[in-house]
Nucleic acid binder design. Structure first.
Lengths: 214, 214
DNA sequence: CCAGTACCGTACCGTACGGTACGCCGCTTC
DNA sequence: GAAGCGGCGTACCGTACGGTACGGTACTGG
C-alpha cells in the first residue's frame, strides 16, 4: 500500500517528468527565496512559459497544491514490516519513526512548505493546510498507531486510547522544534542530535506507557 | 524628527489609548477576516486615516509589530508566588502553566498572530517571528524553568538540564495542538478538555521527572 | 480671532503580480 | 514538406494594495 494507494487516495494523476521538473523548481525557489514566490520567477527558473504553467496547474493555488503533493509523494513511508514484536523491535520501530519525523520537520523544505500552508490556512479557501496535515501529522499517526496497538497486543505497552498515546509520542518527539523553526529560530539539528533527541523521546514514551511482558 | 518619533520607530513605547484602539481593531480584523489585512481596512475599521496609521506606526510591518507587542503585553504572566514548594504546590504551579498555555495557543488570536509571524518569517527581514517567539515559547520557558529548578532544589524533581526538562514539559502539554490549529484543523478545545489535557501532561511530566522526597 | 496642531476622509500614485494573448520554433505525423 | 501541436519567450492587461498628498474640521493656546 505505497505509491498506488496514495495515488488512489488523492485521486490525482502523477505529474509528467517535465511537470516534476517544474515542481522541483518551485521547491528550489521556495527554499532559496522564502515564500515570495511569483509565477514569473517559477517560469523563469523552470524555463517554461507562464501560459504553460496556467495550462498545467490552473492557477497559483493549483501550482502550490501540486507542489505540496509532489513533495509529499517522495516522503513516502518507511518499511511497515509486520511480524512478531518484542521489546527491542518495538523500541527500534519507534526510534525509526522519531528519527524520520525529526528529519522531515527539521528540513528546510518542510519548514517552507508548512509556512506556505499555514499562511494559506489563514485566508479562506485553504485546503492546502489540510493537505499538509494529511501528509504530515495524520500520515505519521496512521503509521505509528498500528505499531502501538501491536505493542499493546504483545503486552509491551499499556494504554486505553491509541490516539492519546500517539499524541503523547508526537509531543515527546517534536516538543518545541517545529514551532521554533516555523517562527524563524536559527535552531539547527545535525544527524547526531536528532538521533539523541529521538532516543530520549522513545525512552520517555516507554517509561510512560511501557510495561514488562507479563 | 522628535524624540517621540524616535521612540515610535523603535516601537518600544506604550501606545496611547487611541493607538490601543487601533491595535485592537487590527486584532479584530485579523480574527474575523483572516490574514488578508489591508491598511485601508484597518483605517476604516478604526475610523482613522491611513496617514495617521503611517505616522504612528511607520509602515505595515510597524503596525503588525506593534499589534503583536500589544497582544503580548496583555498576556502577562501569572503570579510568581515564591515560597516553600511541596509536591502539591509544584503540581498546582505546573498545572497552572499548562492550562494558561493551552488557553493561549488554542485562542483564535494566538493562532492568527502566529500565522502572521510565520508568514513573515518566511520572507526576509522578519523580526516578527522573533517577537512572537520571545513572548510565547521563550517567555513561558523563562517562567517555568525557575519552578522546575525550585522543584529540584526541594528534592521533588530530578533532571540534569532544566532546559531539556522544560522542553519535555512543553511537548507533553502542546503535543500536536498548535501545528494542527495553525494548519486550519477544526480542532476545538473547551475549558474542560483543556483542564483534562493539562492534568494529563502534568501527571506524565511528574511520572518522568518526579521523585519522592527523600 | 488667528495660528498651530492633530487628525479624519478621500482622492491619488506607483508598482508588483496574477492571469492572458500572441508570435515563433521544433517536433511529430502523414 | 505541409499541417498541426505542444511549448517557450515576451509583451501586455487589470487590479489590489502600500504609501502619499491634500482639503476640511475640531480643539487649544495666545
Amino acid at each position: 500500500m505505497t505509491a498506488t494507494a496514495t495515488r488512489e487516495e488523492t485521486g490525482h494523476e502523477a505529474p509528467s517528468a517535465r511537470q516534476q521538473a517544474v515542481l522541483d523548481a518551485v521547491l528550489a525557489l521556495l527554499v532559496e527565496e522564502g515564500d515570495q514566490l511569483t509565477m514569473d520567477a517559477v517560469a523563469r527558473r523552470a524555463s517554461c512559459s507562464k501560459e504553460t504553467l496556467y495550462k498545467w496547474f490552473g492557477d497559483r493555488d493549483g501550482l502550490l497544491t501540486a507542489t505540496v503533493r509532489w513533495q509529499a509523494s517522495r516522503v513516502h513511508a518507511g518499511r511497515d514490516a509486520g511480524g512478531p514484536l518484542d521489546a527491542e523491535t518495538l523500541r527500534e520501530r519507534l526510534l525509526d519513526f522519531a528519527v524520520s519525523w525529526l528529519d522531515v520537520i527539521a528540513g528546510r523544505t518542510s519548514v517552507v512548505l508548512n509556512r506556505i500552508a499555514i499562511a494559506h490556512a489563514g485566508s479562506r479557501k485553504g485546503n492546502l493546510g489540510a493537505i499538509v496535515l494529511a501528509n504530515g501529522r495524520l500520515a505519521i499517526g496512521a503509521r505509528v498507531k498500528p505499531v502501538l496497538e501491536a505493542g499493546r497486543a504483545a503486552g509491551l505497552l499499556a494504554f486505553d486510547d491509541g490516539e492519546t498515546a500517539f499524541r503523547t509520542f508526537f509531543g515527546l518527539v517534536g516538543r518545541d522544534i517545529q514551532i521554533r523553526l516555523l517562527l524563524g529560530d536559527a535552531l539547527e539539528l545535525d544527524a547526531a542530535e536528532i538521533r539523541r533527541d529521538a532516543a530520549r523521546a522513545v525512552d520517555q514514551f516507554l517509561a510512560l506507557y511501557g510495561q514488562a511482558r507479563p
